[in-house]
């Protein structure tokens, strides 16, 4: 066990855990930030996507000891009431079915649009293909991303 001082959603957080603990479980178990989801545990589904210094990162294989002073943003930190343009687009396009993967989808999309405000269809697919939706809402996800890039 070791103490780690983390910067999560702009707030300083101190946790005392095994340094190998993936950030996913630190967020969910220690910090009770449950918007970040467990899906596969091997960085293949994207449900656990967070931003690490603004970069979309799979938190399920990210040891807490590797974070240091890097800024962590989770879905809860993107905006509390859904005012982020990507969240608004998700609402406008009525994207979700079961909704479980959508936190990760939104975090991946927000990171994409931050770096590239007008992604092509191919660029959207490349950036988003790491995020699985078993309900099959891909067409709506893509439309939502395109609507943000048009504004």
């Amino acid at each position: 066990m070791a103490v780690f001082n983390l910067n999560v959603n702009g707030t300083k957080q101190k946790v005392d855990v095994d340094g190998a603990t993936p950030m996913l479980w630190v967020l969910r178990d220690q910090l009770k930030l449950t918007g970040t989801k467990y899906g596969c545990g091997i960085a293949q589904c994207g449900a656990c996507t967070i931003h690490l210094n603004g970069v979309a990162t799979r938190s399920c294989i990210l040891p807490v000891s590797s974070i240091g002073s890097k800024a962590i943003t989770t879905i809860e930190g993107l905006s509390e009431l859904g005012e982020h343009p990507v969240q608004k687009a998700w609402i406008e396009h009525n994207v979700a079915q079961c909704g479980y993967c959508q936190n990760g989808q939104i975090m991946a999309a927000a990171a994409l649009l931050k770096n590239n405000s007008k992604p092509s269809e191919e660029q959207i697919e490349t950036a988003m293909k790491g995020n699985i939706c078993r309900c099959g809402t891909y067409v709506r996800i893509k439309e939502a991303i395109k609507s943000v890039s048009r504004t």
Binding site: R28, G35, T36, L78, S79, N103
Partner: peptide, 15 residues
């Protein structure tokens, strides 16, 4: 439940 779902607040049993 859209707003809850896009803000990470929709309560699943795992949460």
């Amino acid at each position: 439940d859209l707003i809850k779902m896009v803000t990470g607040k929709a309560p699943y049993s795992s949460d």
